[in-house]
Amino acid sequence: MIDVRELTKHFRVHRRPPGFGAALRSLVRRRYEQVVAVEEVSFRIERGERVGFLGPNGAGKTTTLKMLAGLLHPTAGHVEVDGFVPARRDAAFLQRITLVMGQKSQLVWDLPPSETFALNRAMFDVPRAQFRETLDELTALLDLGTLLDKPARQLSLGERMKCELVAALLHRPTTLFLDEPTIGLDVSMQLAIREFVRAYNQRHGATVLLTSHYMDDVVALCPRVIVIDCGRIIHDGDLRGLVKATLPDKRVSFTLPAPLPDGDLERLGTLLVREGLRATLSVGERELPGVVSHVLGTLHGTDLAIEDPPLEDVLRDMFGKRRRAAAAESAP
């Protein structure tokens, strides 16, 4: 269980304008600025939940994850993970968690991943029989094959990421902090990692807190999402609720039997995509039954699909509205 109350993190950042003169002046007089990375964030995640942590770059997602993993000391507020205060870095706490960072490697760079696995086995004091069993399980789930004996530096990004996951899970943590675990991976590898995380969560009842810029990761894995912007939580709830609250219109896609002017379609809703006979409209919930009935009955449309807008669009709209509101507030 993760319990976060009014968690705050400020960083002191040295600012200086570009140029040689500014560089010299900064030797004598330095200008520091207090940057608010996370501001009074509160949430609670129950054991076994899979939660997506979303927000634009610099919103405070990774900073929050680092505080939850005990890497950063909070400026203020309270954090507990499974009853432990992360910043104290108790061995028993570290034994229960893992943090996977897509852009940071824990593999020993010049040695095969099997050496990192052995190192982690020793440091996490995993009994040899359990280590063997877990490694076999993870190797099969991630299809590691012959990767174990290849130096880490010679692995492709996808191969390395699979090995990072194995290294991170060998001690069977019950809380997984996953920071962009699929970044830079191709679609099939993203799919494999997603399936793996879901299987691990179901098999071990592990709690998963995931940040990703690939919304498909979040949609596929996380029934609940927490959205953070400028260090503050702006949504905490189920994914459908977020979509409904932000962009309630539905996407209606269909194929026409014969060409039709765009103007005729625009009378039904906002025309989003038109590719030959295939069209996608954005339609309000109230108008939806009428539009569907018209498309099928009058226009004789086929292959009709009704979907929520993509999460990317929902978030873009949400953050766009916030930016515009902030700009309007600060305008004279």
């Binding site: 061995a91 940071k104 490697s105 824990q106 440091m123 004091d125």
Partner: peptide
């Protein structure tokens, strides 16, 4: 470079 983080996640 922040790579110390990885060492801090281990209980030794």
């Amino acid at each position: 470079r922040g790579t110390l983080s990885m060492r801090l996640l281990r209980p030794v």
